[in-house]
Amino acid sequence: MSGKRGLSLIVLVLVAIAFPASGALDEKVALRSSQAAIGRELGDYRLVDSREREVRLSDLRGQPLIVNFIYTGCFQVCPTVTKALAIAVAEAERTVGPGKFRVATIGFNLPFDTPQAMKQFAKQQGISAPNWLFLSPQADTLPQLIADFGFSYEQTIAGFDHLLQASIVDANGRIYRQLYGDRFEAPQFVGPIVELLANAPRALGDVAGLYEQIRLLCTIYDPTSGKYRVNYAVVIEIIVGLSIFLVGIPVLIFEWRRRRRADHPAASG
C-alpha cells in the first residue's frame, strides 16, 4: 500500500467515525411524518435569533408563519431553496401586502448553526427583511421541535440528507400546509397565506379591515401571468351590493313603522 493511498484510507476512516452516516433518508417515511404534522399545534420552543435575542415560538403567533429548516454548512441545496423561498415570499407580499406574515429559517445542525452562522447565511442569501428571522434552536429541545414540524433528516458523510420542506403555520400556531421541493409556485405558496388572512377575524366597524377582507376574498390566481391578482369587478359588485343593502335598511324600517301605525291607529281624544 502506497503512502498516499494509506493516508487517504485513514482520512476516510476518521471522517466516517466523526460523522457516522445512518443511511439515505427514506422519502416515503419522511413525507408521511410531514403530512401527519398538518393540523398539529406546535409547542412553545425557545430559540435565539441572529442578533442573539431570545425568541419563543409563541412570540410569532398572531400572523401566518412560514418555517423552513436548513444547515449553514450546506453550500448548494439550502442556499438554492432559501433563495427560491425569498422569491415566493416577495410574491406573497406583493399579493397580500408587507408585514402580513412572518418567515423563520431554523438551523438544525447543532452546535454549528449558531446565531453568528445563521446571520452569515442570511447575508450570503441577500435576506435582511425585518419579518424574516434566522433562528438557532436549543440542543435539548431540537428533536421535539423537528418532530412537531414533521421535518426529517439523516446525517451522511457529505452532510445531511433532509426533506426540502416549508411549513405554513396559522396565527394560532397550527401547521396549515406543508410544501415540498426546491421551488415554490404561487398557487401552492401564496394561496394558503391568502386563505389564512381572508379567514382571520376583523374588528367590527373597521372599514379598512373590511375592505382588506373583501380584497383578499377576491384575490385570484392568474395562470397567464403566474401571479395572484385582485378581481376588482367582484370587489365592486360586493361593495355595490352592500351599499344597496345599507340604503335599503332605513326604507324597510320606515315602511314597517308606517304599516304598524296604519294597523294600530292612535285613539282619538
Rank of each mutant, 00 (worst) to 15 (best):
Leu142Arg: 00
Glu237Val: 07
Tyr228Leu: 02
Gly23Phe: 12
Ser50Val: 03
Glu185Met: 05
Met1Cys: 12
Ile168Pro: 07
Ala36Phe: 06
Gly97Asn: 04
Gln178Pro: 00
Phe69Ile: 02
Leu196Val: 09
Leu217Phe: 03
Arg177Pro: 09
Gly159Asn: 05
Phe112Cys: 10
Thr114Trp: 02
Arg174His: 06
Ala139Asp: 15
Ala233Gln: 13
Ser128Glu: 12
Leu60Thr: 01
Val251Ile: 11
Ala208Ser: 14
Arg94Cys: 07
Val11Gln: 13
Ser128Pro: 12
Gln125Asp: 11
Leu9Met: 13
Gln125Leu: 03
Ala122Ile: 02
Phe184Tyr: 04
Gly269Thr: 15
Ile193Ala: 01
Tyr221Thr: 03
Leu60Trp: 03
Ala233Lys: 14
Ser2Arg: 07
Arg257Val: 11
Ala266His: 14
Trp132Pro: 01
Ala233Leu: 15
Leu216Glu: 00
Ala233Met: 09
Asp148Tyr: 04
Gly191Thr: 05
Gln188Leu: 13
Asp182Ser: 15
Ile239Lys: 02
Trp256Ile: 01
Trp132Glu: 00
Ser34His: 02
Arg94Ile: 09
Gly241Ala: 02
Asp26Met: 06
Ser33Glu: 12
Leu110Ile: 05
Asp161Met: 03
Gly99Trp: 14
Cys78Asp: 03
Arg46Gln: 14
Gln165Ile: 03
Tyr180Asn: 05
Ser22Tyr: 05
Gly248Ile: 13
Arg61Ala: 08
Phe254Trp: 12
Gly3Pro: 10
Ala186Thr: 11
Ile168Asp: 00
Ala147Leu: 09
Arg215Trp: 15
Leu197Tyr: 05
Gly181Met: 08
Pro98Asn: 00
Ala84Pro: 08
Ala24Asn: 07
Arg258Gln: 14
Pro20Val: 10
Pro192Tyr: 11
Asp44Ala: 04
Arg94Pro: 12
Thr95Tyr: 11
Glu185Gln: 14
Pro130Arg: 09
Val89Gly: 03
Gln116Tyr: 13
